[in-house]
Structure formats: structure tokens, C-alpha cells
Amino acid sequence: MGVVEIIGWVIIVIGVAFLFLGALGLFRMPDVYSRMQTATKSVTFGTMGTIFGVGLVHPEWFWKTLIIAVFIAISNPISSHALARGSYKMGIRPFTKEENMDDLEPVVDKSEDEEE
């Protein structure tokens, strides 16, 4: 085992740890938006680390795994952004302990008035 292969296995283990913590956050968080943020950030970083580590273990596969990691980094935040926007417009409000914590509500109402 060379040095690069050992570095690759270490990166794979770090990525899988982040991915597991992201899934655990999806299990434990209280409402849709916090679940969405832990799922997107942590799971995207974990998947990128895992795929990049496989590319370091097999040096001939490096460029194709790099392409997969770049596509994951582009496509996963796009879908999560569209999902957050859709669930806010559907009427799901964020989980707060105090009243009047929703800073986004007057902005969204004003922009919908301008569209009409």
C-alpha cells in the first residue's frame, strides 16, 4: 500500500462519517427546514469525500470520479433549494419558540403582490 492509497482510505472514512451524521440529523431534527439543511450540507460533503477517496485509491479512475463529485456538488443544492422554496409557498412555516420570528413572510407577500 502506497501513501496515496492510505490517504484515500482515510478520506473515505471521513466522508462516510459525515454521511452517517447527516442521516442521523435527518432522523432527529424538529422541522422540515432544519432537516433539509443537515441533509443537504452534510450528505453532499460526505458523498463527495467518499467518491474522491475512491479516486485516490485507484489512480486510473481519478478523472471520472472527479466528474461525479462535481456533478453531485452542482445538482444536490439545486434540488434542495427548489424544495425549500416549494414547501414555503405550500404553507409550511419554520419551527420557532417565539412569536413573529418569520422574517421571510413580509418579503414573500410583497413580491407576490408585485407579480400580480
Binding site: 447527516g22 435527518l26 422540515v32 441533509a39 458523498t47 467518491i51 453531485i72 434540488s79
Partner: peptide
């Protein structure tokens, strides 16, 4: 809510890629 289940499907596809 339906949003929770869609987030779950998104994460299943990402974990499947890894």
C-alpha cells in the same frame, strides 16, 4: 408532511450513488 418524504427520497439517491 410530503416535503419530508421528498427529502428522504433525495437522500436515498445520494447515498445510493456513494
Amino acid at each position: 408532511t410530503p416535503s419530508d418524504r421528498i427529502v428522504a427520497l433525495d437522500n436515498i439517491t445520494t447515498i445510493t450513488t456513494a
